[in-house]
Write a protein that binds this DNA or RNA. Sequence first.
RNA 1: GCCCCGGUAGCUCAGUCGGAUAGAGCGACCCCCUCCUAAGGGGUAGGCCAGGUGUUCGAUUCACCUCCGGGGCACCA
Length: 557
Amino acid sequence: MTPGELVDVIANALRECVAAGTIAVTVEELPSAPVVERPKNPEHGDYATNVAMQLAKAAKTNPRVIAAALADQLAGTPGIAGVEIAGPGFLNIRIEASAQGVLARDVVEAADNYGRSDTLAGQRFNVEFISANPTGPLHLGHTRWAAVGDAIASVLDAAGADVDREFYINDRGVQMDLFGASIMAAANGQDVPENGYRGAYIADLAAEVVAADPDIRQLPSDEQSIAFREAGYRLQLKQQQETLNSFHTYFDSWFSERSLHADGGVERALEKLREQGHVYTEDGAVWLRTTDFGDDKDRVLIKANSDLTYFASDCAYYVNKRDRGFTTCLYLLGADHHGYVNRLKAVAACAGDDPAKTIEVLIGQLVKTMRDGKEVKLSKRAGEIVTLTDLVDEVGVDAARYTLIRYPADSPLTLDLGLLVKRSNDNPVYYVQYAHARISSVLRNAAELGLNWRDGDIAFDPALLATDREGELLRAIGDFPRVVASAAELREPHRVARYLEDLATAYHRFYDTCRVLPRGDEPVEALHVSRLWLCAATRQTLSNGLTMLGVSAPERM
RNA sequence: GCCCCGGUAGCUCAGUCGGAUAGAGCGACCCCCUCCUAAGGGGUAGGCCAGGUGUUCGAUUCACCUCCGGGGCACCA
Protein backbone atom coordinates (compact mmCIF):
# COMPACT_ATOMS: atom_id res chain seq x y z
CA MET A 1 0.00 0.00 0.00
CA THR A 2 1.42 3.35 -0.99
CA PRO A 3 1.01 6.49 1.08
CA GLY A 4 -1.35 7.80 -1.57
CA GLU A 5 -3.56 4.76 -1.22
CA LEU A 6 -3.43 5.02 2.54
CA VAL A 7 -4.67 8.60 2.34
CA ASP A 8 -7.71 7.36 0.43
CA VAL A 9 -8.28 4.54 2.91
CA ILE A 10 -8.22 6.97 5.82
CA ALA A 11 -10.45 9.46 4.03
CA ASN A 12 -13.01 6.70 3.43
CA ALA A 13 -12.80 5.50 7.01
CA LEU A 14 -13.41 9.04 8.25
CA ARG A 15 -16.51 9.36 6.11
CA GLU A 16 -17.81 6.09 7.46
CA CYS A 17 -17.17 7.23 11.02
CA VAL A 18 -19.14 10.39 10.36
CA ALA A 19 -21.97 8.40 8.79
CA ALA A 20 -22.01 6.08 11.79
CA GLY A 21 -21.94 9.01 14.17
CA THR A 22 -18.75 7.96 15.93
CA ILE A 23 -17.01 11.19 14.96
CA ALA A 24 -19.15 14.25 15.58
CA VAL A 25 -18.29 16.47 12.63
CA THR A 26 -19.92 17.09 9.28
CA VAL A 27 -18.60 15.57 6.09
CA GLU A 28 -17.67 19.06 4.94
CA GLU A 29 -15.33 19.47 7.90
CA LEU A 30 -13.30 16.42 6.92
CA PRO A 31 -10.05 17.03 5.10
CA SER A 32 -10.19 15.74 1.54
CA ALA A 33 -6.65 14.40 1.87
CA PRO A 34 -5.68 13.66 5.47
CA VAL A 35 -2.01 14.15 6.21
CA VAL A 36 -0.07 10.91 6.23
CA GLU A 37 3.57 11.14 7.19
CA ARG A 38 6.41 8.79 7.80
CA PRO A 39 7.42 9.02 11.47
CA LYS A 40 11.10 9.44 12.15
CA ASN A 41 10.88 7.06 15.06
CA PRO A 42 10.24 3.50 13.83
CA GLU A 43 8.37 2.75 17.05
CA HIS A 44 5.70 5.07 15.74
CA GLY A 45 4.74 2.68 12.99
CA ASP A 46 5.13 2.80 9.23
CA TYR A 47 2.88 5.79 8.77
CA ALA A 48 1.17 8.22 11.08
CA THR A 49 -1.67 10.67 10.76
CA ASN A 50 -2.55 13.67 12.91
CA VAL A 51 -6.07 13.97 11.51
CA ALA A 52 -7.69 13.22 14.89
CA MET A 53 -6.00 16.25 16.45
CA GLN A 54 -7.06 18.43 13.56
CA LEU A 55 -10.67 17.38 13.93
CA ALA A 56 -10.72 17.76 17.71
CA LYS A 57 -11.73 21.40 17.63
CA ALA A 58 -14.63 20.92 15.22
CA ALA A 59 -15.83 17.85 17.11
CA LYS A 60 -15.32 19.53 20.47
CA THR A 61 -13.87 16.38 21.94
CA ASN A 62 -10.55 14.97 23.03
CA PRO A 63 -8.47 14.03 19.99
CA ARG A 64 -7.85 10.60 21.45
CA VAL A 65 -11.59 9.87 21.33
CA ILE A 66 -11.62 10.62 17.63
CA ALA A 67 -8.46 8.63 17.11
CA ALA A 68 -10.09 5.65 18.84
CA ALA A 69 -13.13 5.79 16.58
CA LEU A 70 -10.94 6.01 13.49
CA ALA A 71 -8.72 3.20 14.73
CA ASP A 72 -11.74 0.92 15.16
CA GLN A 73 -12.89 1.75 11.67
CA LEU A 74 -9.45 1.09 10.15
CA ALA A 75 -8.81 -2.16 12.01
CA GLY A 76 -9.32 -5.09 9.71
CA THR A 77 -8.78 -3.12 6.53
CA PRO A 78 -6.89 -5.38 4.12
CA GLY A 79 -3.22 -4.48 4.09
CA ILE A 80 -3.27 -2.77 7.46
CA ALA A 81 -1.53 -4.81 10.12
CA GLY A 82 -2.09 -2.60 13.09
CA VAL A 83 -3.30 0.77 14.31
CA GLU A 84 -2.27 2.42 17.57
CA ILE A 85 -3.20 5.62 19.29
CA ALA A 86 -0.22 7.50 20.65
CA GLY A 87 0.66 10.73 22.38
CA PRO A 88 -1.93 13.49 22.15
CA GLY A 89 -3.86 11.72 19.40
CA PHE A 90 -1.54 10.49 16.71
CA LEU A 91 -2.63 7.40 14.90
CA ASN A 92 0.27 5.11 14.13
CA ILE A 93 -0.36 2.65 11.34
CA ARG A 94 1.50 -0.50 10.38
CA ILE A 95 1.22 -1.94 6.91
CA GLU A 96 1.38 -5.67 6.16
CA ALA A 97 4.60 -6.68 4.46
CA SER A 98 2.82 -8.17 1.48
CA ALA A 99 0.70 -5.06 0.96
CA GLN A 100 3.86 -2.97 1.04
CA GLY A 101 6.01 -5.30 -1.02
CA VAL A 102 3.84 -5.27 -4.13
CA LEU A 103 5.15 -1.79 -4.73
CA ALA A 104 8.43 -3.28 -5.95
CA ARG A 105 6.69 -4.95 -8.84
CA ASP A 106 4.47 -1.94 -9.54
CA VAL A 107 7.49 0.33 -9.84
CA VAL A 108 9.40 -1.99 -12.14
CA GLU A 109 6.37 -2.28 -14.37
CA ALA A 110 5.73 1.46 -14.38
CA ALA A 111 9.40 1.93 -15.36
CA ASP A 112 10.13 5.46 -16.57
CA ASN A 113 6.63 6.54 -15.66
CA TYR A 114 7.03 5.90 -11.95
CA GLY A 115 6.74 9.22 -10.18
CA ARG A 116 4.85 10.92 -12.97
CA SER A 117 1.36 12.19 -12.25
CA ASP A 118 -1.34 14.35 -13.75
CA THR A 119 -1.64 16.81 -10.89
CA LEU A 120 -0.81 19.73 -13.20
CA ALA A 121 -2.45 18.32 -16.32
CA GLY A 122 -3.90 20.94 -18.62
CA GLN A 123 -1.56 23.72 -17.56
CA ARG A 124 0.81 25.20 -20.11
CA PHE A 125 3.95 26.67 -18.63
CA ASN A 126 6.44 28.98 -20.25
CA VAL A 127 9.54 28.68 -18.11
CA GLU A 128 11.91 31.49 -18.91
CA PHE A 129 15.35 31.44 -17.37
CA ILE A 130 18.90 32.67 -17.73
CA SER A 131 18.03 35.18 -20.48
CA ALA A 132 21.53 36.65 -20.44
CA ASN A 133 22.66 39.42 -22.72
CA PRO A 134 24.60 37.91 -25.61
CA THR A 135 27.50 40.15 -24.72
CA GLY A 136 29.65 37.76 -22.75
CA PRO A 137 30.14 34.26 -21.48
CA LEU A 138 27.65 32.72 -19.07
CA HIS A 139 28.94 33.01 -15.53
CA LEU A 140 28.08 31.43 -12.22
CA GLY A 141 25.21 33.80 -11.67
CA HIS A 142 23.52 32.26 -14.70
CA THR A 143 24.55 28.77 -13.76
CA ARG A 144 22.26 28.44 -10.80
CA TRP A 145 19.23 28.96 -12.96
CA ALA A 146 20.65 26.86 -15.78
CA ALA A 147 20.52 23.91 -13.41
CA VAL A 148 17.52 24.79 -11.27
CA GLY A 149 15.37 26.23 -14.06
CA ASP A 150 15.85 23.14 -16.14
CA ALA A 151 14.99 20.95 -13.15
CA ILE A 152 11.86 22.98 -12.39
CA ALA A 153 10.73 22.48 -15.96
CA SER A 154 11.37 18.74 -15.70
CA VAL A 155 9.50 18.45 -12.45
CA LEU A 156 6.52 20.34 -13.86
CA ASP A 157 6.59 18.02 -16.83
CA ALA A 158 6.60 15.01 -14.51
CA ALA A 159 3.52 16.42 -12.81
CA GLY A 160 1.72 16.35 -16.14
CA ALA A 161 2.08 19.96 -17.22
CA ASP A 162 2.90 21.05 -20.76
CA VAL A 163 6.21 22.88 -20.44
CA ASP A 164 8.35 25.04 -22.72
CA ARG A 165 11.83 26.11 -21.69
CA GLU A 166 12.65 29.52 -23.09
CA PHE A 167 15.72 31.73 -23.24
CA TYR A 168 15.03 35.40 -23.92
CA ILE A 169 17.86 36.96 -25.84
CA ASN A 170 18.37 40.62 -24.95
CA ASP A 171 19.80 41.38 -28.36
CA ARG A 172 18.73 44.99 -28.65
CA GLY A 173 19.71 48.28 -27.13
CA VAL A 174 22.60 50.20 -25.68
CA GLN A 175 24.44 47.22 -24.23
CA MET A 176 24.59 45.58 -27.64
CA ASP A 177 26.00 48.77 -29.16
CA LEU A 178 28.62 48.98 -26.43
CA PHE A 179 29.48 45.36 -27.06
CA GLY A 180 30.06 46.06 -30.76
CA ALA A 181 32.10 49.16 -30.02
CA SER A 182 34.21 47.26 -27.51
CA ILE A 183 35.05 44.50 -29.98
CA MET A 184 35.83 47.05 -32.66
CA ALA A 185 38.14 48.90 -30.29
CA ALA A 186 39.94 45.70 -29.42
CA ALA A 187 40.34 44.81 -33.09
CA ASN A 188 41.86 48.18 -33.83
CA GLY A 189 44.07 48.31 -30.76
CA GLN A 190 42.15 51.23 -29.30
CA ASP A 191 41.15 51.89 -25.70
CA VAL A 192 38.01 50.30 -24.30
CA PRO A 193 35.09 52.71 -24.77
CA GLU A 194 33.54 54.28 -21.70
CA ASN A 195 31.42 51.69 -19.86
CA GLY A 196 32.51 49.18 -22.46
CA TYR A 197 33.30 45.52 -22.04
CA ARG A 198 36.72 44.35 -20.97
CA GLY A 199 38.17 40.92 -20.53
CA ALA A 200 40.13 38.56 -22.66
CA TYR A 201 37.05 37.22 -24.37
CA ILE A 202 36.49 40.57 -26.12
CA ALA A 203 39.92 40.36 -27.72
CA ASP A 204 39.26 36.75 -28.66
CA LEU A 205 35.99 37.71 -30.31
CA ALA A 206 37.70 40.56 -32.14
CA ALA A 207 40.37 38.24 -33.47
CA GLU A 208 37.82 35.70 -34.58
CA VAL A 209 35.66 38.28 -36.31
CA VAL A 210 38.63 39.77 -38.14
CA ALA A 211 39.89 36.34 -39.14
CA ALA A 212 36.54 35.51 -40.70
CA ASP A 213 36.22 38.90 -42.41
CA PRO A 214 39.59 40.64 -42.84
CA ASP A 215 38.03 43.57 -44.68
CA ILE A 216 35.78 44.52 -41.80
CA ARG A 217 38.26 47.05 -40.53
CA GLN A 218 38.08 48.96 -43.79
CA LEU A 219 34.47 49.91 -43.13
CA PRO A 220 33.56 53.40 -42.00
CA SER A 221 33.39 53.67 -38.22
CA ASP A 222 29.57 53.57 -37.90
CA GLU A 223 29.14 50.60 -40.17
CA GLN A 224 32.14 48.87 -38.69
CA SER A 225 30.76 49.09 -35.18
CA ILE A 226 27.50 47.52 -36.32
CA ALA A 227 29.33 44.84 -38.28
CA PHE A 228 31.41 43.94 -35.23
CA ARG A 229 28.29 43.95 -33.08
CA GLU A 230 26.43 41.57 -35.37
CA ALA A 231 29.37 39.23 -35.88
CA GLY A 232 30.19 39.24 -32.16
CA TYR A 233 26.54 38.62 -31.34
CA ARG A 234 26.42 35.52 -33.54
CA LEU A 235 29.63 34.13 -32.06
CA GLN A 236 28.69 34.89 -28.46
CA LEU A 237 25.20 33.49 -28.80
CA LYS A 238 26.55 30.34 -30.37
CA GLN A 239 29.03 30.01 -27.55
CA GLN A 240 26.29 30.41 -24.95
CA GLN A 241 24.23 27.78 -26.70
CA GLU A 242 27.13 25.37 -26.83
CA THR A 243 27.92 26.00 -23.19
CA LEU A 244 24.36 25.23 -22.18
CA ASN A 245 24.28 22.13 -24.34
CA SER A 246 27.41 20.93 -22.63
CA PHE A 247 25.67 21.59 -19.33
CA HIS A 248 22.73 19.44 -20.50
CA THR A 249 20.33 22.35 -20.43
CA TYR A 250 18.28 22.47 -23.59
CA PHE A 251 15.80 25.18 -24.57
CA ASP A 252 12.68 24.72 -26.63
CA SER A 253 13.01 28.24 -27.87
CA TRP A 254 15.55 31.03 -28.01
CA PHE A 255 13.38 34.09 -28.19
CA SER A 256 14.91 37.21 -29.65
CA GLU A 257 13.95 40.62 -28.30
CA ARG A 258 14.58 42.02 -31.76
CA SER A 259 11.89 39.78 -33.21
CA LEU A 260 9.31 41.54 -31.07
CA HIS A 261 10.23 44.80 -32.71
CA ALA A 262 10.65 43.36 -36.19
CA ASP A 263 7.25 41.73 -36.43
CA GLY A 264 5.18 44.47 -34.85
CA GLY A 265 4.76 42.70 -31.53
CA VAL A 266 5.54 45.85 -29.60
CA GLU A 267 2.92 47.89 -31.43
CA ARG A 268 0.32 45.18 -30.96
CA ALA A 269 1.06 44.98 -27.25
CA LEU A 270 0.85 48.75 -26.83
CA GLU A 271 -2.44 48.71 -28.67
CA LYS A 272 -3.75 46.03 -26.36
CA LEU A 273 -2.71 48.00 -23.28
CA ARG A 274 -4.33 51.10 -24.71
CA GLU A 275 -7.57 49.24 -25.28
CA GLN A 276 -7.55 48.22 -21.64
CA GLY A 277 -7.25 51.91 -20.76
CA HIS A 278 -4.03 52.02 -18.78
CA VAL A 279 -1.84 54.07 -21.13
CA TYR A 280 -1.43 57.83 -20.87
CA THR A 281 0.91 60.61 -22.05
CA GLU A 282 2.71 62.98 -19.71
CA ASP A 283 5.83 65.18 -19.98
CA GLY A 284 6.17 64.04 -23.56
CA ALA A 285 6.50 60.39 -22.61
CA VAL A 286 4.02 57.52 -22.88
CA TRP A 287 3.33 55.75 -19.60
CA LEU A 288 1.66 52.60 -18.39
CA ARG A 289 -0.35 53.17 -15.25
CA THR A 290 0.99 50.16 -13.34
CA THR A 291 0.10 51.85 -10.06
CA ASP A 292 -3.47 50.76 -10.78
CA PHE A 293 -2.25 47.31 -9.85
CA GLY A 294 0.09 47.66 -6.94
CA ASP A 295 3.29 48.94 -8.54
CA ASP A 296 5.13 51.75 -6.68
CA LYS A 297 5.17 54.08 -9.65
CA ASP A 298 4.00 54.22 -13.23
CA ARG A 299 6.42 53.08 -15.91
CA VAL A 300 7.52 54.69 -19.12
CA LEU A 301 6.86 52.84 -22.36
CA ILE A 302 8.07 55.44 -24.84
CA LYS A 303 10.56 58.06 -23.77
CA ALA A 304 10.14 61.75 -24.60
CA ASN A 305 12.78 61.28 -27.29
CA SER A 306 10.50 58.59 -28.76
CA ASP A 307 12.79 55.69 -27.96
CA LEU A 308 11.08 52.56 -26.70
CA THR A 309 12.10 51.50 -23.21
CA TYR A 310 13.22 48.06 -22.25
CA PHE A 311 10.00 47.92 -20.26
CA ALA A 312 8.06 48.22 -23.51
CA SER A 313 9.78 45.07 -24.71
CA ASP A 314 8.87 43.35 -21.44
CA CYS A 315 5.23 44.19 -21.99
CA ALA A 316 5.31 43.01 -25.58
CA TYR A 317 7.07 39.83 -24.55
CA TYR A 318 4.45 39.06 -21.94
CA VAL A 319 1.60 39.65 -24.38
CA ASN A 320 3.41 37.49 -26.91
CA LYS A 321 3.70 34.62 -24.44
CA ARG A 322 0.02 34.76 -23.68
CA ASP A 323 -0.80 34.91 -27.39
CA ARG A 324 1.17 31.71 -27.81
CA GLY A 325 -1.25 30.04 -25.41
CA PHE A 326 0.72 29.73 -22.21
CA THR A 327 -1.50 29.70 -19.14
CA THR A 328 1.34 30.38 -16.74
CA CYS A 329 4.44 32.45 -17.43
CA LEU A 330 7.20 31.51 -15.03
CA TYR A 331 10.03 34.02 -14.74
CA LEU A 332 13.13 32.82 -13.01
CA LEU A 333 15.11 35.90 -12.07
CA GLY A 334 18.10 36.81 -9.99
CA ALA A 335 17.78 38.65 -6.70
CA ASP A 336 18.89 41.85 -8.41
CA HIS A 337 15.62 41.79 -10.37
CA HIS A 338 13.20 41.43 -7.51
CA GLY A 339 11.99 44.96 -8.06
CA TYR A 340 10.48 43.69 -11.33
CA VAL A 341 7.99 41.39 -9.70
CA ASN A 342 5.30 43.94 -8.98
CA ARG A 343 5.67 45.64 -12.31
CA LEU A 344 5.49 42.37 -14.26
CA LYS A 345 2.32 41.46 -12.42
CA ALA A 346 0.98 44.92 -13.08
CA VAL A 347 1.67 44.43 -16.78
CA ALA A 348 -0.41 41.27 -16.76
CA ALA A 349 -3.21 43.07 -14.98
CA CYS A 350 -3.00 46.00 -17.42
CA ALA A 351 -3.32 43.50 -20.25
CA GLY A 352 -6.55 42.26 -18.72
CA ASP A 353 -5.21 39.08 -17.14
CA ASP A 354 -5.31 37.87 -13.56
CA PRO A 355 -1.63 38.00 -12.63
CA ALA A 356 -2.14 35.61 -9.76
CA LYS A 357 -2.88 32.97 -12.40
CA THR A 358 -0.74 33.93 -15.36
CA ILE A 359 2.48 35.19 -13.81
CA GLU A 360 4.78 33.61 -11.37
CA VAL A 361 8.17 35.03 -10.55
CA LEU A 362 10.77 33.04 -8.71
CA ILE A 363 13.68 35.00 -7.32
CA GLY A 364 16.94 33.14 -7.05
CA GLN A 365 19.32 34.49 -4.45
CA LEU A 366 22.87 35.14 -5.48
CA VAL A 367 25.54 32.52 -5.41
CA LYS A 368 28.56 33.66 -3.49
CA THR A 369 31.66 31.92 -4.66
CA MET A 370 34.69 31.34 -2.50
CA ARG A 371 38.03 29.90 -3.29
CA ASP A 372 40.27 28.88 -0.43
CA GLY A 373 38.25 30.93 2.01
CA LYS A 374 38.32 34.08 -0.10
CA GLU A 375 35.43 35.47 -2.05
CA VAL A 376 35.69 35.34 -5.83
CA LYS A 377 34.01 38.38 -7.31
CA LEU A 378 32.29 38.08 -10.63
CA SER A 379 33.20 41.13 -12.55
CA LYS A 380 32.81 41.39 -16.29
CA ARG A 381 34.48 44.77 -16.21
CA ALA A 382 37.61 43.55 -14.53
CA GLY A 383 37.48 40.56 -16.79
CA GLU A 384 37.66 38.15 -13.90
CA ILE A 385 34.81 35.82 -14.56
CA VAL A 386 34.08 32.45 -13.18
CA THR A 387 32.24 31.04 -16.13
CA LEU A 388 29.88 28.16 -16.36
CA THR A 389 32.46 26.45 -18.54
CA ASP A 390 35.13 26.88 -15.84
CA LEU A 391 32.87 25.31 -13.26
CA VAL A 392 32.04 22.34 -15.44
CA ASP A 393 35.69 21.85 -16.32
CA GLU A 394 36.58 21.79 -12.67
CA VAL A 395 33.87 19.62 -11.17
CA GLY A 396 31.97 18.03 -14.04
CA VAL A 397 28.40 18.47 -15.19
CA ASP A 398 26.80 16.06 -12.76
CA ALA A 399 28.46 17.45 -9.65
CA ALA A 400 27.90 21.05 -10.74
CA ARG A 401 24.24 20.57 -11.56
CA TYR A 402 23.51 18.52 -8.49
CA THR A 403 25.27 20.90 -6.13
CA LEU A 404 23.27 23.81 -7.46
CA ILE A 405 19.97 21.96 -7.45
CA ARG A 406 20.12 20.49 -3.95
CA TYR A 407 19.63 23.89 -2.31
CA PRO A 408 16.42 25.90 -2.61
CA ALA A 409 16.99 28.71 -5.07
CA ASP A 410 15.48 31.35 -2.82
CA SER A 411 18.12 30.96 -0.18
CA PRO A 412 21.56 32.49 -0.58
CA LEU A 413 24.19 29.93 -1.39
CA THR A 414 27.90 29.92 -0.74
CA LEU A 415 30.01 27.67 -2.91
CA ASP A 416 33.63 27.08 -2.15
CA LEU A 417 35.12 26.08 -5.47
CA GLY A 418 38.28 24.71 -3.91
CA LEU A 419 36.27 22.59 -1.53
CA LEU A 420 33.93 21.44 -4.23
CA VAL A 421 36.80 20.12 -6.29
CA LYS A 422 38.76 18.66 -3.44
CA ARG A 423 35.87 16.82 -1.90
CA SER A 424 34.30 15.91 -5.14
CA ASN A 425 34.23 12.28 -4.08
CA ASP A 426 32.22 13.20 -1.04
CA ASN A 427 29.70 15.24 -2.96
CA PRO A 428 26.23 13.84 -2.30
CA VAL A 429 25.74 13.35 -6.02
CA TYR A 430 28.26 10.52 -5.95
CA TYR A 431 26.51 8.99 -2.99
CA VAL A 432 23.29 8.83 -4.96
CA GLN A 433 24.96 7.73 -8.16
CA TYR A 434 26.90 5.09 -6.29
CA ALA A 435 23.67 3.54 -5.06
CA HIS A 436 22.53 3.33 -8.66
CA ALA A 437 25.81 1.82 -9.80
CA ARG A 438 25.82 -0.62 -6.92
CA ILE A 439 22.37 -1.91 -7.82
CA SER A 440 23.34 -2.11 -11.46
CA SER A 441 26.23 -4.30 -10.42
CA VAL A 442 24.00 -6.62 -8.42
CA LEU A 443 21.62 -6.96 -11.35
CA ARG A 444 24.55 -7.66 -13.70
CA ASN A 445 25.79 -10.35 -11.36
CA ALA A 446 22.34 -11.86 -11.21
CA ALA A 447 22.28 -12.05 -14.99
CA GLU A 448 25.70 -13.70 -15.01
CA LEU A 449 24.41 -16.29 -12.58
CA GLY A 450 21.65 -16.98 -15.07
CA LEU A 451 19.16 -15.78 -12.51
CA ASN A 452 16.07 -14.63 -14.34
CA TRP A 453 14.23 -12.77 -11.63
CA ARG A 454 11.83 -11.02 -13.89
CA ASP A 455 10.04 -13.88 -15.57
CA GLY A 456 11.78 -17.01 -14.41
CA ASP A 457 10.25 -20.03 -12.68
CA ILE A 458 10.46 -18.60 -9.22
CA ALA A 459 7.83 -15.97 -8.58
CA PHE A 460 8.09 -12.65 -6.82
CA ASP A 461 6.58 -12.90 -3.35
CA PRO A 462 5.99 -9.49 -1.76
CA ALA A 463 5.39 -10.98 1.68
CA LEU A 464 9.03 -12.04 1.86
CA LEU A 465 10.20 -8.41 1.91
CA ALA A 466 9.52 -8.29 5.60
CA THR A 467 12.62 -7.08 7.44
CA ASP A 468 12.82 -3.56 8.87
CA ARG A 469 15.36 -2.51 6.29
CA GLU A 470 13.23 -3.79 3.44
CA GLY A 471 10.22 -1.99 4.86
CA GLU A 472 12.21 1.23 5.13
CA LEU A 473 13.35 0.92 1.55
CA LEU A 474 9.86 0.20 0.25
CA ARG A 475 8.43 3.16 2.10
CA ALA A 476 11.19 5.37 0.71
CA ILE A 477 10.38 4.22 -2.82
CA GLY A 478 6.71 4.82 -2.12
CA ASP A 479 7.37 8.46 -1.24
CA PHE A 480 8.69 9.34 -4.68
CA PRO A 481 5.43 10.33 -6.40
CA ARG A 482 4.45 12.58 -3.49
CA VAL A 483 7.87 14.20 -3.49
CA VAL A 484 7.77 14.89 -7.21
CA ALA A 485 4.25 16.28 -7.02
CA SER A 486 5.12 18.63 -4.19
CA ALA A 487 8.38 19.65 -5.87
CA ALA A 488 6.34 20.63 -8.92
CA GLU A 489 3.65 22.38 -6.95
CA LEU A 490 6.16 24.37 -4.92
CA ARG A 491 8.66 24.80 -7.80
CA GLU A 492 11.30 23.30 -5.53
CA PRO A 493 13.30 20.61 -7.30
CA HIS A 494 15.76 20.48 -4.41
CA ARG A 495 13.19 18.28 -2.72
CA VAL A 496 13.82 15.63 -5.31
CA ALA A 497 17.58 15.78 -4.69
CA ARG A 498 17.18 15.51 -0.94
CA TYR A 499 14.75 12.68 -1.42
CA LEU A 500 17.21 10.78 -3.60
CA GLU A 501 19.81 11.05 -0.87
CA ASP A 502 17.36 9.51 1.59
CA LEU A 503 16.49 6.80 -0.87
CA ALA A 504 20.17 6.02 -1.43
CA THR A 505 20.66 5.77 2.33
CA ALA A 506 17.73 3.36 2.62
CA TYR A 507 19.23 1.24 -0.12
CA HIS A 508 22.74 1.19 1.35
CA ARG A 509 21.30 0.18 4.72
CA PHE A 510 19.26 -2.56 3.10
CA TYR A 511 22.30 -3.77 1.17
CA ASP A 512 24.32 -3.86 4.33
CA THR A 513 22.07 -6.38 6.06
CA CYS A 514 20.10 -8.11 3.35
CA ARG A 515 21.94 -10.50 1.08
CA VAL A 516 20.40 -10.30 -2.39
CA LEU A 517 22.12 -12.94 -4.49
CA PRO A 518 22.62 -16.57 -3.49
CA ARG A 519 26.22 -17.19 -2.54
CA GLY A 520 28.31 -20.09 -3.64
CA ASP A 521 26.23 -23.16 -4.30
CA GLU A 522 23.11 -21.93 -2.61
CA PRO A 523 19.96 -22.63 -4.61
CA VAL A 524 17.95 -19.73 -5.91
CA GLU A 525 14.97 -19.08 -3.69
CA ALA A 526 11.95 -16.83 -3.77
CA LEU A 527 13.67 -14.49 -1.31
CA HIS A 528 16.51 -13.83 -3.77
CA VAL A 529 14.07 -13.18 -6.57
CA SER A 530 11.90 -10.90 -4.45
CA ARG A 531 14.89 -8.87 -3.30
CA LEU A 532 16.02 -8.49 -6.90
CA TRP A 533 12.64 -6.96 -7.69
CA LEU A 534 13.20 -4.59 -4.80
CA CYS A 535 16.65 -3.71 -6.14
CA ALA A 536 15.26 -3.11 -9.60
CA ALA A 537 12.51 -0.91 -8.21
CA THR A 538 15.06 1.14 -6.28
CA ARG A 539 17.25 1.54 -9.31
CA GLN A 540 14.31 2.64 -11.41
CA THR A 541 13.33 5.26 -8.85
CA LEU A 542 16.89 6.57 -8.54
CA SER A 543 17.19 6.72 -12.28
CA ASN A 544 13.88 8.55 -12.73
CA GLY A 545 14.85 11.08 -10.07
CA LEU A 546 18.35 11.72 -11.37
CA THR A 547 17.06 12.09 -14.91
CA MET A 548 14.61 14.69 -13.68
CA LEU A 549 17.52 16.69 -12.31
CA GLY A 550 19.56 16.34 -15.48
CA VAL A 551 22.13 14.19 -13.72
CA SER A 552 23.32 10.90 -15.16
CA ALA A 553 22.58 7.53 -13.56
CA PRO A 554 25.76 5.51 -14.15
CA GLU A 555 25.81 1.73 -14.45
CA ARG A 556 29.34 1.61 -13.06
CA MET A 557 31.54 3.90 -11.07
C1' G B 1 13.44 55.69 4.06
C1' C B 2 10.63 51.66 1.45
C1' C B 3 10.71 46.53 -0.66
C1' C B 4 12.70 41.21 -1.25
C1' C B 5 15.76 36.96 0.78
C1' G B 6 18.31 34.95 4.82
C1' G B 7 20.09 34.06 10.40
C1' U B 8 19.20 26.15 12.65
C1' A B 9 25.83 21.77 15.01
C1' G B 10 32.90 23.97 13.96
C1' C B 11 31.64 24.63 8.10
C1' U B 12 27.79 24.21 4.03
C1' C B 13 22.81 23.56 4.54
C1' A B 14 17.69 20.42 4.96
C1' G B 15 13.31 20.68 7.89
C1' U B 16 5.21 22.54 2.15
C1' C B 17 -0.49 23.65 5.16
C1' G B 18 2.07 24.36 13.29
C1' G B 19 3.05 18.11 15.79
C1' A B 20 6.06 13.08 19.01
C1' U B 21 13.27 12.95 21.19
C1' A B 22 15.37 19.38 15.70
C1' G B 23 18.26 16.33 10.88
C1' A B 24 22.08 15.41 6.72
C1' G B 25 26.85 15.98 4.48
C1' C B 26 31.71 17.61 5.49
C1' G B 27 35.23 18.11 9.64
C1' A B 28 36.73 15.20 14.78
C1' C B 29 36.86 10.43 17.36
C1' C B 30 35.63 4.91 17.63
C1' C B 31 33.93 0.21 15.42
C1' C B 32 32.52 -3.16 10.79
C1' C B 33 34.82 -6.34 4.47
C1' U B 34 37.25 -15.01 3.93
C1' C B 35 30.67 -13.11 0.92
C1' C B 36 26.68 -9.29 -4.38
C1' U B 37 31.03 -2.20 -5.57
C1' A B 38 33.92 0.08 1.85
C1' A B 39 32.46 6.06 -3.29
C1' G B 40 29.28 1.66 1.93
C1' G B 41 27.22 0.53 7.09
C1' G B 42 27.04 1.27 12.64
C1' G B 43 28.30 4.53 16.78
C1' U B 44 30.27 8.98 19.96
C1' A B 45 30.91 14.20 20.52
C1' G B 46 28.79 18.81 18.87
C1' G B 47 22.25 23.13 19.30
C1' C B 48 19.29 29.13 23.99
C1' C B 49 16.63 26.79 15.90
C1' A B 50 19.66 35.34 16.20
C1' G B 51 16.69 37.91 20.42
C1' G B 52 11.81 39.39 22.35
C1' U B 53 6.37 39.49 22.57
C1' G B 54 1.88 37.32 21.01
C1' U B 55 -1.66 33.43 18.89
C1' U B 56 -2.89 27.69 21.28
C1' C B 57 -3.45 21.65 23.55
C1' G B 58 1.36 22.32 21.04
C1' A B 59 5.87 27.24 17.66
C1' U B 60 12.27 26.12 14.31
C1' U B 61 7.42 26.63 11.54
C1' C B 62 2.32 31.58 12.09
C1' A B 63 1.91 37.29 13.46
C1' C B 64 4.35 41.70 15.25
C1' C B 65 8.90 44.17 16.98
C1' U B 66 14.37 44.49 17.48
C1' C B 67 19.36 43.17 16.01
C1' C B 68 22.77 41.17 12.20
C1' G B 69 24.08 39.72 6.91
C1' G B 70 22.90 39.89 1.35
C1' G B 71 20.16 42.21 -2.67
C1' G B 72 16.99 46.13 -4.88
C1' C B 73 14.89 51.32 -5.55
C1' A B 74 15.95 54.88 -12.94
C1' C B 75 12.53 58.43 -19.19
C1' C B 76 19.73 52.24 -17.40
C1' A B 77 19.81 47.78 -20.02
